[in-house]
């Protein structure tokens, strides 16, 4: 029993990082209606910028955090220009293929600049382990959970209380409607992209700091986790993205404990596959999306 509780705590912690990744994906997908395959690799650029600073000057946590964020946002801005802004409005497939090409490019560029198998990343080892009776809590896990909660609230406030948030929401409803009501569509899309990358950068920083080391394999890993969490959350709501991440983290933690590594993989993907078929709108899907898809599902 105590194992289940401990697994749940661990799962919720890593799940909140997944939730942040899904949040970034969802923001981009909501505004662009396109998949950004290079999301993980822009975060990878950020993490390696942080690791470089750490290796070069043994910088403190705050400059490393800033470097991670800056790297992720810069790389994302590059992707946004080439794969989204400059590609014709109705060519969603082209954006996806293009962002995939840039993923390969960024990842290969990093692998070339950082040829070792793995690099050290500063971890929060200064903080002590918390003991709650028989349960152990790693402080970085608490940090992950709190950060995710704070960011979701902040994002929600930004989207509902600010003019920029209103513009983002208009854009995600309809590009045309946004344009005719005077929204600078290109600028809002670009900024949303950067915000998504910054959120992803925070998640990447937390994940890297928890592990204490990083490798170029993280890019694919981040993309997969974020994508899965976004899809099980039902594409579109921020709260849903967080829930999707938490569910993924929980399932992974329990399956890892009871079934081992390959058991975990099989369980996660089998569950994902079944969930997609049975809950095609995701856990927190929206009703209007259901209506839109209703016609297509019948054919």
């Amino acid at each position: 029993m105590i194992d289940v509780v401990q697994n749940t705590l661990d799962g919720l912690a890593i799940g909140s990082a997944y939730g942040l990744l899904a949040l970034g994906f969802t923001l981009i997908f909501g505004v662009m209606r396109r998949l950004n395959m290079a999301f993980g690799s822009s975060i990878l650029v950020g993490i390696f910028a942080g690791a470089w600073l750490h290796g070069q000057w043994a910088a403190g946590m705050i400059p490393i955090f800033a470097a991670t964020l800056a790297g992720a946002v810069l790389a994302a801005a590059y992707v946004e220009r080439l794969s989204f802004a400059w590609i014709r409005g109705d060519a969603a497939l082209a954006s996806m293929a293009s962002s995939f090409a840039l993923w390969m490019q960024l990842e290969d560029g990093i692998a070339r600049a950082f040829p070792q198998r793995s690099y050290a990343f500063p971890s929060f080892d200064i903080l002590p382990l918390l003991e709650l009776g028989p349960l152990l809590l790693r402080p970085e896990f608490i940090a992950m959970f709190l950060t995710a909660a704070v960011l979701v609230v902040a994002l929600h406030l930004m989207l509902t209380r600010t003019v920029f948030g209103l513009q983002v929401r208009t854009l995600s409803e309809s590009r045309e409607a946004a344009r005719v009501s005077g929204v600078n569509v290109g600028r809002v899309a670009f900024l949303t992209f950067c915000i998504a990358a910054a959120i992803g950068g925070v998640a990447g920083f937390l994940i890297a700091a928890t592990d204490g080391q990083i490798s170029t394999k993280l890019g694919l890993w981040i993309t997969m986790k974020g994508l899965i969490a976004m899809v099980i959350s039902g594409l579109g709501s921020l709260r849903g993205a967080l829930i999707g991440g938490l569910v993924l983290g929980l399932v992974e933690a329990q399956a890892q404990w009871y079934l081992g590594a390959s058991g975990r993989e099989i369980t996660v993907f089998a569950l994902l596959f079944v969930a997609l078929i049975l809950l095609p709108q995701g856990l927190a899907g929206r009703a209007d999306a259901a209506a839109r898809n209703e016609a297509l599902r019948r054919l």
């Binding site: 590609i87 082209a94 954006s95 293009s98 840039l102 490019q105 960024l106 290969d108």
Partner: peptide
């Protein structure tokens, strides 16, 4: 530099 060239090339072609 294969992927670096290829990636950039593809992005340009798709534009």
């Amino acid at each position: 530099y294969r992927m670096i060239v290829f990636g950039g090339l593809v992005a340009l072609v798709l534009i």
